[in-house]
């Protein structure tokens, strides 16, 4: 058991997968010699060789299309796209082939593969490096989408994603890569794809979030708790398939919900969660569901990032307004 941050936990999961399954290989831009732009694949090429930790040409469609062929023919590729905002050249491959081959062949061919994508803002990066467009992939039938916010979940979810018989998009919260450390078991373990994690139990209000926004959500929960509010915090961890039962169970208990996400408001995942709550827990609701999200603007550059990202204050204010009703 070692104390690891999220980047190290992902590295440890890749290491474990490479050592325990010959079919696993990693491919992506700069994943080998450079160890990845965030050093997440650091050291793996030296340990497993250039045949299994493969540097690729700068070609996202090529990376995903080749990984797809590898998966169909029996390998377990883990492809890296450097940033979620760079994934769109591969969108055709992901949507039209990766997500559909099982359906197209009635289970005869499948594409068990993982696509790792660092996502989210708050690090003052150049344009296209800060996107949080997870809803774009959650909307696609045939894909699973997961996003850890803790080192333990990062290792367990990634090993589960690599084991999964279907394609999994694995989102990595860039600004949390090195923000949290915890003891991570070095034994082989998985975290089930699907169930959310109740990070904090409470009875007055439910805060729902995932990935990078869990940091602000945790801080908001701390402030509310100090003020005497009993806060329940849900870390969704899996965005597709959504743990509707888990969300509904919490809201039935608390009667209040605030959904926090970094992505723009309109047609963001918050809308789906709010709709689920009103469909299934309307009579438990004491107040309308609140959404605290990014704006319907292009993700701004460094000097305006703090105007865009949902702040702890905004989350606390939304919760207080819900509690006043």
């Amino acid at each position: 058991m070692a104390e690891l941050n999220i980047a190290q936990a992902i590295n440890s999961a890749l290491d474990t997968a490479l050592s325990s399954d010959d079919r696993v290989l990693i491919l992506g831009e700069d994943v080998g010699r450079a160890g990845g732009v965030f050093r997440v694949t650091d050291g793996l090429r030296n340990r497993y060789g250039a045949e299994r930790v493969v540097d690729t040409p700068v070609a996202e469609s090529g990376i995903i299309g080749a990984a797809f062929g590898l998966a169909v023919a029996g390998m377990r590729p883990v492809a890296e796209i450097q940033f979620l905002g760079f994934s769109y050249p591969a969108y055709d491959q992901i949507v039209n082939h990766v997500a559909r081959i099982r359906n197209r062949t009635n289970h005869r061919h499948t594409s068990p593969m993982v696509i790792r994508m660092p996502y989210g803002g708050g690090i003052g990066a150049a344009e296209h490096h800060s996107e949080s467009t997870e809803a774009v992939y959650v909307h696609i039938p045939g894909l699973k989408v997961v996003v850890p916010s803790t080192p333990k979940d990062a290792r367990g979810l990634l090993l589960a994603a690599i084991e999964d018989p279907d394609p999994v998009i694995f989102l990595e919260p860039i600004r949390l890569y090195r923000a949290v450390k915890e003891h991570v078991p070095d034994i082989y373990y998985t975290v089930d794809i699907g169930p959310l994690r109740v990070e904090r139990e409470g009875s007055d209000i439910t805060l729902v979030s995932w990935g990078a926004m869990m940091r602000e959500t945790r801080q908001a929960a701390g402030i509310l708790a100090e003020a005497g509010v009993s806060v329940e915090v849900l870390d969704l961890r899996t965005l597709s398939p959504l743990d509707r039962d888990g969300i509904v169970a919490s809201v039935e208990k608390t009667g209040r919900a605030v959904i926090v996400h970094e992505a723009p408001l309109t047609a963001g995942l918050g809308a789906e969660i709010a709709a689920t709550i009103q469909e299934r827990a309307l009579y438990s609701l004491k107040t309308p569901v609140r959404r605290v999200t990014g704006w319907d603007t292009v993700f701004p550059l460094k000097r305006s990032e703090h105007h865009y990202l949902p702040s702890v204050d905004r989350i606390v204010a939304a919760a207080e307004s819900a509690l006043e009703d």
């Binding site: 290989l25 045949e51 469609s61 299309g65 062929g69 590898l70 169909v72 029996g74």
Partner: peptide, 19 residues
């Protein structure tokens, strides 16, 4: 769809070589 399937033959062939 036109063209997306060509790269699949790269991955498929690659897997066979690895196997």
């Amino acid at each position: 769809t036109v063209g997306g399937h060509m790269i699949h033959a790269v991955g498929l062939a690659w897997a066979e070589r690895l196997k």
